[in-house]
Design a protein around this nucleic acid. Structure first.
Lengths: 185, 185, 185, 185
DNA sequence: GATGAATGAGCATTCATTCAT
DNA sequence: TATGAATGAATGCTCATTCAT
């Protein structure tokens, strides 16, 4: 649905820029070039619109993460690729990144059932688990390791976006190496 | 000022629970047991109240971080202590942690001048810089390294608070070791 | 027209239950199983739909009132029958009764020209007039008498519907007798 | 409270003229010469405002009804007075009458607990009960009789207000006599 | 005729802020 | 200092109505 997409895109952009509460539905309507009432054909409420937007981008991230993963390659290369995938996606889709972080760190996150929100990390947990089983990675909790790896990616993206230290490739490789040294066997 | 403190505490608690926009000034007044108008004797506006609250807790974190740091100890022990200090503070002061994260990940963060907000990491940057200079840590960007270390602490606290994997001490030591292995020379 | 009837019936039911303003056209459409736009093929507006519904049931009541009236019977029996007719119709068609009362007691009643609305009582006025002329009823204003009689019927139906004192037959006969004693010569 | 009274009066007037849903809160505010938000200091919601308005006038009616009742007078005179009291009050306070009728005949009436709403008739029931016990009135259900008497008053007021047959005193006496003849022993 | 997506004016309600006391 | 009643602009949402198909 074209209008639904327009609404979702306008919401993403505006919330990223202004925050949840500084983004009135009327402004979303204006930017999406639909009438205010139209939004309510596609979404039950502002709350539900935002939740759906989050679910959409959460799933998108999950699908991007393992793109191009090839189990025949050396695990270290695969690890480097996963890190790069997310870094590239987030830095090229700043709004998505900032929206996800804003959402995940606000109390509205609790509107999402615990299980569903835990599942965000599932693909990454599976991925590190493989590395653990094959002896490439430390034999520690996969849940913990996945969080640490993902957290490092987020840290690097934030540093990049802060403008304080833009990530050229060499620096990114350093960050990946640092992460790898932490988790490798 | 007793009332000012009451207002700040009420604000912290309510924003942590409800979020910025779901926390009306009237509710803050009620919880702080002052009249609505009284808040405006101590703060110019809601915005300024929140900003001041953030500044307060940001500085508190900076002071907690290096508590008990003793430059005569082995650097690795000092590193372990910094990590533990923050972990302990955040898990024992959940509201502060959640408030800082909520604030730092929302667009209102931009209200704070870039420099000031970068300075949050300054003590940690100095700390890792020492490790680099003495050859204990990798010779890479201190800014990057500080972010990675702090990001790992945040990751561990969030995992703990999610209830998905409570951190007993052994697990915490694992997380510290993983971080250390990443940054050490 | 089948759909038109469905719309009228849905409107009656919903307005009786929810009131005029708590009955959106979309809800009427849903219950009548037609599209929202379809209603506007049969009715000009919500206002006109409601007015037509009222006219419909007002006329229905007029036709029910004198059903089975036989001028060869004793007038007192005929009086009793008119009373019973309306009581029976209203208690067996609760929605119609409640809708008429709701409509007649709301300011929208003024949308109907005075004359037309006065004509609701016309058949009853004629009926009591006969009783007056033949000396069965008091020689007082027929308009007044008709209103008193109809008012008594309404009172009895409301008491019945309130559940506070269900009308079995004996009680109904008492009510009729009381009314009769008031108006008879 | 001066403003509260102004709000109640404005609401009464406007609802009587326009109906519940055609009376926006902004219009109430305007007529009461207060800000829109001020209404919500005194009332929780539009619904509660209307309910309170109804309760207020319901109680007022109950207190007016028996005004000047003197148990040493002949019962018939007392009966005539009760009838006259209500007729006079309603015709001199048209808005109150129309509001009560509009409210009582709309589905919102169900917001009021059954018992409370039944109690509206209680004073009148007690009054007719006295007449029954002393043998002045028919020995029939007091509940039924009270409803019939009150219904007659309402009928007379409505006829008067319709403009179709203004009630001068002689006519009013006729109406009272008709009612009395119906209920007297 | 029939549909239902789309419109946008209108509504109830909230809330940051002010100010007379 | 402190109060809390009062303000009124702003917000999320509804709903009668239209119109392209």
């Amino acid at each position: 649905m074209d209008k639904k997409t327009a609404i979702l895109e306008a919401t993403l952009e505006l919330i990223t820029k202004n925050g949840f509460h500084a983004t009135p539905m009327s402004m979303v309507a204006q930017h999406a070039k639909v009438a205010a009432g139209t939004i309510y054909h596609y979404f039950d409420s502002k709350e539900q619109l935002i939740d759906e937007l989050y679910a959409l981008h959460r799933d998108k991230v999950a699908s991007v993460m393992l793109q191009g993963d090839d189990s025949s390659k050396p695990y270290k290369d695969r690890f480097r690729q996963v890190f790069s995938n997310l870094f590239a996606y987030y830095t090229q889709n700043t709004d998505q990144f900032l929206f996800i972080e804003q959402y995940a760190n606000s109390p509205i996150m609790n509107r999402i059932p615990r299980e569903e929100s835990a599942s965000f990390y599932q693909p990454l947990i599976e991925f590190v688990r493989k590395g653990i089983h094959t002896g490439q990675l430390k034999d520690i909790s996969a849940k913990l390791m996945a969080r640490l790896v993902y957290g490092n990616i987020v840290s690097v993206v934030k540093l990049h976006l802060s403008g304080d230290l833009p990530m050229e490739n060499a620096l990114l490789q350093t960050a990946i190496a640092t992460t790898w040294d932490g988790v490798r066997q």
